[in-house]
């Protein structure tokens, strides 16, 4: 009974396993220089050392704190802004063009600006992630809220809901599926912005660690951190999707 699910698990992760084996072989057989691509087993050993020394955890926690704080602010402000824009024509007329102007701008260009404003610490990263992640949420919330069924709005109003109550009870849940889609984009963006800003100016964090280890020639350890970041991002997305499926379980 146990073998069957185990077998299925193995099949599902077969591409990853093959990739890992190819990596190990390519390096061990000197098909590529072990300096450019250290063997995976060495990377794994370096990973354990980083965990034992506590470096991975302390830098990881500081990165997660920055990403989490920036993202949380972006979701709250972006969601509110999108719904506000969808519910008020003057607000939309005023802020719509600004949103359109800033949305396509590469937010990594703001790294020096946020450092200039808030220095090398957590503040500048949180601000950058906040600025970079807000607009995808805003646009998702706006589109979702705009699609609210007017019959639902009328129903709530006729049952005695005042305007603000109606927005909370009807417009917000109507906006939720698209808003949550925007949050997923923002989640991926937050990792990109986090690591790139930490690579450039930081004294802590995943990005800092990658840059530091690379500059010192500890390539095994550097790869270990890169893989950790990749896995953390993957895990965050998976957990997020599970949460969304639960929140939106009312849909078919």
């Amino acid at each position: 009974m146990m073998t069957y699910p185990l077998f299925k698990l193995l099949i599902r992760h077969a591409p990853l396993l093959i990739l890992a084996m190819a990596w190990e072989a390519a390096s061990r057989l000197h098909l590529v220089s072990p300096l450019a691509l250290p063997p995976l087993t060495d990377v794994a050993r370096a990973w354990f050392e980083l965990v034992q020394s506590g470096e991975l955890l302390s830098n990881g926690l500081s990165s997660l704190y920055r990403a989490g704080a920036g993202l949380a602010l972006a979701i709250m402000a972006g969601g509110a802004l999108g719904i506000f824009m969808a519910s008020s024509r003057p607000v939309n007329a005023m802020l719509g063009p600004l949103v359109e102007l800033f949305y396509p701008m590469p937010k990594s260009a703001l790294i020096p600006v946020t450092v200039l404003w808030l220095g090398f610490g957590d503040g500048s990263k949180i601000l950058l992630i906040f600025l970079g992640c807000m607009l995808p949420v805003t646009i998702g919330a706006y589109n979702g809220a705009r699609g609210s069924d007017r019959h639902l709005i009328w129903s709530a109003r006729s049952m005695g809901a005042r305007r603000l109550r109606m927005v909370w009870d009807v417009v917000v849940p109507s906006a939720l599926p698209e808003l949550l889609n925007g949050v997923r984009t923002a989640l991926a963006l937050s990792f990109i912005l986090l690591v790139s800003s930490e690579l450039i100016v930081a004294r802590q964090g995943f990005g800092y660690l990658i840059g530091y280890l690379g500059a010192n020639g500890s390539y095994e350890a550097m790869f270990a951190v890169v893989l950790t970041v990749a896995f953390t991002g993957f895990l965050a997305d998976r957990v997020y999707q599970a949460v969304v499926a639960r929140v939106l379980r009312w849909r078919e």
Partner: peptide, 27 residues
């Protein structure tokens, strides 16, 4: 609009995120 005039629409206009009980409780 006001709760003195109840409305029923062709497309039902139920809150899809609420259960039957929560829909009926809303008013």
């Amino acid at each position: 609009p006001g709760p003195d005039r109840g409305i029923v629409f062709q497309n039902f206009a139920l809150f899809p995120w609420k259960t039957v009980r929560k829909n009926v409780l809303y008013g």
